[in-house]
Simulated assay, not measured.
Amino acid sequence: MDYNGSRFGIGGLFLKTVLLSLVTLGIYNFWGRTQIRRAVWAAVGVDGEPLEYTGTGKELFLGFLKAVALLIGIGVAMLVLDWVGSLLHSGIGLPLAAMAFSLILAVLAVAAVYLAMRYRLSRTLWRGIRFGLDGEAHRFVLGTIGYSLLALATLGICVPLLRTWQVRTIVNSARYGTVPFRMEAWGVTLIWPWILAMLLAAPTLGIALVWYRVREFRSWTSSISVAGVTLDSRLRLGDVLGPAILLTVITVVFVVGLLLPTIFEWLEVWRTRLPRPGANMLSVIAIGIYVALAPTINFIVLGHTVLKASCETMAIGGALDAGPRVNAGSGGAP
């Protein structure tokens, strides 16, 4: 595998998306995200052949409108539930509606992860053959709920079981043309590294968490196979540690710098015992700008390096035997 993307070229697309989204009240975001995906997909090559992304901004925008319509419908149903509760002189109408709405949003958010992956794979081609994702979103939702409860009951110890199950479910439902992917990783092997990373996260200023994510990535990808081809990730902490530390430093410096006016105001209040001032609007606006620019900064500093290192340390073994070239392009090929 190889990655030949431009750090500042693709980073510029992130910045362009942010700026034009602000001007168009968020509408351009769907077309901007599509441009970014096309650039990233085209920069990733397998055996000298780049990936191809065929999704459109219009598809993303229409999907967003459907999601908004669904949420409005759910909101109306919750208001009706509250109204019925008030007619029955029950004080639980509003709390019950709020709880139901929150649970429904959580379920939809999990389902959206699976459906979004299905969309992206269905718009991804390599050598003219389209990827796909089968399976049902409701199975993914139910499994995520079960493993989330397990992680909660174990105070986070079983988080690797949750994350690995989610990835394994998606990979084992994916296919290249008609040839299925297989993933055999199990989260239980990552529990002790996860516990160690959590214990050392604070003393190492987060470096232990980066180490864990690298180990997790190797564990996942090195258990994936498709049509006689096996993957073996050789990514190491040193490949991504420098940019990860730099991004952390940049974030801390920016946040502290942007909050300094508010910090000085609070110190003055503490010294003079004057009434507490309101939020410093300059700091609020500056933090908002930084949050908007965060995706651009993240890609330029860290994302580009992670993509390049992940691709160029991925060893591929075996010979691809995909059988007949079906599901190629949009209509299939003989």
Results as ranks from 00 to 15, higher is better:
188 V>Y: 10
236 R>F: 09
217 F>M: 08
189 T>L: 10
161 L>W: 11
194 W>C: 01
236 R>W: 08
224 I>A: 04
211 W>V: 05
137 A>C: 08
192 W>M: 15
214 V>D: 00
171 V>T: 09
141 V>K: 03
166 Q>K: 10
195 I>D: 06
197 A>R: 10
233 S>V: 09
206 G>Q: 03
206 G>I: 01
228 G>C: 10
239 D>I: 00
185 A>F: 02
199 L>W: 12
214 V>L: 01
157 I>W: 00
200 L>Y: 11
215 R>Q: 10
236 R>M: 13
208 A>S: 04
146 G>N: 04
158 C>H: 07
154 T>Q: 05
126 W>A: 09
184 E>Y: 08
216 E>C: 11
223 S>F: 11
193 P>W: 05
160 P>W: 10
142 L>I: 14
222 S>P: 03
164 T>C: 08
216 E>W: 12
227 A>T: 02
168 R>E: 11
146 G>P: 06
213 R>L: 13
218 R>P: 06
156 G>S: 05
157 I>G: 04
173 S>H: 14
145 I>H: 06
227 A>R: 00
166 Q>H: 12
188 V>N: 09
198 M>H: 08
224 I>E: 05
232 D>M: 02
192 W>Y: 07
219 S>K: 12
192 W>N: 03
175 R>N: 08
235 L>N: 06
224 I>L: 01
214 V>N: 00
132 G>N: 02
139 R>C: 08
225 S>C: 06
224 I>W: 02
230 T>V: 04
